[in-house]
Write a protein that binds this DNA or RNA. Sequence first.
RNA 1: GGCAGCGUAGCUCAGUGGUAGAGCAGAGGACUCAUAAGCCUUUGGUCGUGGGUUCAAAUCCCUCCGCUGCCA
Length: 559
Amino acid sequence: MGERIFIGVAWPYADGPLHLGHIAGAYLPSDIFARYHRIKGNEVLMVSGSDQHGTPITIKAEQEGKKPEEIANHYHQQFLDSWQKLGISFDLFTRTGTANHAEVSHDFFLTLLNRGYIYKATVSQPFCPHCRRFLSDRYVEGTCPYCHFSGARGDQCDECGKPMTPAELIDPRCKLCATTPQFKDSEHFFFRLSAFQDRLLAWMKGQTHWRQNVLNFTMRYVEEGLKDRAITRDIDWGVPVPLDGFEGKRLYVWFEAVIGYLSATKEWAKSSGDEAKWRSFWQGNEAKSYYFIGKDNIIFHTTIWPAMLMGYDGLNLPYDVPANEFLTIEGSKLSTSRNWAVWLPDYLSRYEPDPLRYLLSISMPETGDTNFSWREFVRRNNDELVATYGNLVHRVLTFVYRNFDGSVPTPGEFDSRSQAVIDMAKDTLNTVDRLLSQCHFREAMRSAMSLAQDTNRYLEEKSPWKVIKEDKQAAATALYVAISVISCLRTALYPFLPFSSQKLHRFLGFEGSVEDDGWQPHFPSPGQKLLPPEPLFSKLDEGLIEEEVSRLGHVTHNL
RNA sequence: GGCAGCGUAGCUCAGUGGUAGAGCAGAGGACUCAUAAGCCUUUGGUCGUGGGUUCAAAUCCCUCCGCUGCCA
């Protein structure tokens, strides 16, 4: 019996398209991890969904004269399309707007309320009489009381960086209509996060396998002292509060969206026909839960969500939260408002998925921010993916196909050099296995690529194209060894490059899918029929660099 | 403002006490199965600055400069 692995991935906010930062931060690593565990034969459940609620979507809807659900649905469909094209293999990608999610959220809310972890309190909130709604902090603007900057927001001043509340602003105004807001009392629910301080600290001290940056950051945050947090808002777009007298309020998205991990699992179980199946991933010690997120989401997944789970009781806490750092674009911080971003649908409309998966894997922001540049993208594709790996596969398969009747050649005795190459292929499979199980994606990819490079050296030494003229058996042996290594690369690279691995699987004459073949050094049998080989990857024209760079920074629309 | 991280070859990045590393780019070479790809050799860094600890520091400590993140 294999392991059971739950993979929760950050819920993308459905008010705009995905960009490369999202992919490098959460979606690609989670997919690599999921594919790795599936090919190992482990039971995997990978879920996420669109985060559809909250103020920004309602604002965008108003600006575009649409309903919030239209905006949310549009991006939800776009997300699904992107997952399919990029090969992000969710078992379920749902949304927070389902009846199921509301039901699970209500259960969570009421359970925490009954246990005393949620309480009611009155707060003073800015209300815009013209827009006729309560304003969230960042939708109130005014003059900063510290530096007198006129464009300060209700949560912070961009000029001097000081944090504040809307009530502190001089001459506050509604960001949307510039009307002066009134402050009104409003009754809200709060999550008693402070009650979990000691339990969280004790729990965290046991999480020595977490990434150092995640652990340090979380510990510091908790040690500073946890404060209770409001979990309801005065808006009408979201999951309703399941109590009479709160019809005009909704659950705050930060509270409700994380519950999505559980509600998605329950939805998945229902549609599988076995409603109780969700328990196998959430209860008992058989399953490990991993949460893949960007570093901006660390606290929610290492502190707040665990506290909610502790309060609810009886559900598994996160086993690991391998949060990634950020991606910069052409050396500058990513910014959606300045359109300094590479949008995923845009990328996928012009390029193949595997080159991007390769680049983001080999330079994944695991331990620090990394930079994406189009020059680097073209270089990594042309000089590494195509030249080292793609060309290795192509030179071997075309030569064998032409000289050995389109079949895997029958090898003779292995000399020590050939045996060493075979051993190295097996070792690499083990190394990649270990590294992936520890979420060291970049190292794992490097290890696989260095096997491809060593195999190119081996071929050079054996020169089957020369040797074949006088000793066909010797050439056959060298080529058999090379094909065997390639077969291992097909497996080792599958989590990273699923599309090309599957193609290679067929070229080598295997049936079915790479995934069903399992994580093992499965060498082709002598005599096995090959398919006519084609290049796995294509070179990219350097001209695209300038073209793509020039797109950056220009405000576009219709994404 | 407080806290934290980063600053290593032209570029992208590894490297947490013991004679500076990889890939790519640059230079030279032999080969030709392959997407003019692959292979061999080679140029190149006083590891941001200034101090300190140590037999020994890119690696530990402090100052400063620059960038980034979190608190927000």
